[in-house]
Amino acid sequence: MFEKEFESFLKEQIKGASGQRLEMLGRDLTGTKKLLEEVLIPVLGTFDGLMLEFELLSLSGTKIYADVCHPMLRTVFEEDSFVTHAERITRDRFSFERARARSVAILGYTYFPYSRDELEKKPIFCQRNLYELIGRVGHVEGAGLLQLPVYEREVLRCGILRNEPFQLADVSKWLQLRREACRRVVRNLKANSLIESIGGSDFRCHKFRITENGVKLLHRR
């Protein structure tokens, strides 16, 4: 099942790529595939929301590529082989990798690397690490979130982990509240530009999604 889903996912990624990213997607992705199979898909449950060879602009102005990125979670995942990233690395390459990690951090992404040995020998431990990371998304210690009522915080947290637009029925299930109460929560989030409507009309909205402001609020520390 994973093999077929991965092939379909890779084809979609290639279809939407161009330039150097397209070239990167044509290289050996054995390590990236291992990362997806052993950790990301078992934890996230879906390929939705993930991007392979995610392109970023480093602080020096050069393009850098992450093995896998979840833009909504603002997290970059990497599979690092000891041979290529440590044993045979040059001093210049070592410095480049450190600068690359700093660029990822300054651009507002969490850098979350795994070694090939960990993926092969300790997959459950690796999964547990990711569960812990996800659990900290939107943690109440984030200064911005403290300004929101608890129900609004929970809608943002559940919404960002869903990886796709959500409906009022979803909000009702998350909060265990009646639809009218959920409408008030959604209305407040929209008024603060933390979520936005998709489809429907000015009077009746069918679906909602987290805005860029909402994403930034969840990841503010």
Rank of each mutant, 00 (worst) to 15 (best):
L57R: 08
L148F: 11
F77Y: 15
F82P: 04
E53P: 07
N188G: 15
I210P: 02
E120G: 07
I14W: 02
E38C: 07
G142Y: 12
P123S: 07
V171D: 09
D67S: 01
L217I: 11
E7P: 04
D80E: 12
S81R: 08
C69N: 07
L25A: 10
R183E: 15
R157S: 10
S201K: 00
K11R: 13
D170M: 03
E118M: 12
L161W: 06
N163W: 05
K34T: 15
A105Y: 13
F82M: 10
R21D: 06
Y111E: 03
I41G: 05
L22Y: 06
G61E: 09
I134Q: 05
V150C: 08
I14H: 00
E141A: 14
G19P: 06
L35N: 03
E97I: 14
F47Q: 01
E79V: 13
M1Q: 11
S60N: 12
D28W: 07
L217C: 10
C69S: 14
L50A: 04
L177D: 03
K122E: 15
L52E: 03
Y114T: 11
Q20W: 08
S58I: 06
G108Q: 09
E12R: 12
I89H: 02
R183P: 08
L148S: 04
S95W: 08
I210K: 00
R204F: 12
V76Q: 01
T84C: 03
T30V: 09
W174Y: 06
E97Y: 06
N192A: 14
F166M: 04
K122G: 07
L218I: 10
D170I: 10
L218W: 09
R136L: 15
Q176T: 13
G61L: 10
K121M: 12
E212Q: 14
K122I: 15
E152W: 02
G144L: 15
E87Y: 13
G19S: 07
D80I: 02
A99E: 13
G214A: 09
S193P: 00
G159C: 05
S172G: 06
V76E: 01
L57N: 04
V137T: 14
K190A: 07
D28A: 11
N129D: 14
H206Q: 09
E3S: 13
E164K: 10
A66L: 08
L130N: 01
N163T: 10
G45R: 01
E196Q: 13
G214W: 01
I198T: 11
R162W: 10
S18I: 06
L22K: 08
K122N: 15
I195F: 09
E180S: 00
I41L: 11
P42E: 05
S81A: 14
R221C: 09
P165R: 00
A66Y: 00
G144W: 12
L40P: 04
R157I: 15
A181G: 04
L29W: 06
R157M: 15
L189G: 02
K121N: 15
H206C: 06
E97C: 08
R183C: 09
L217V: 08
E3C: 00
L156G: 09
I210M: 03
G200K: 06
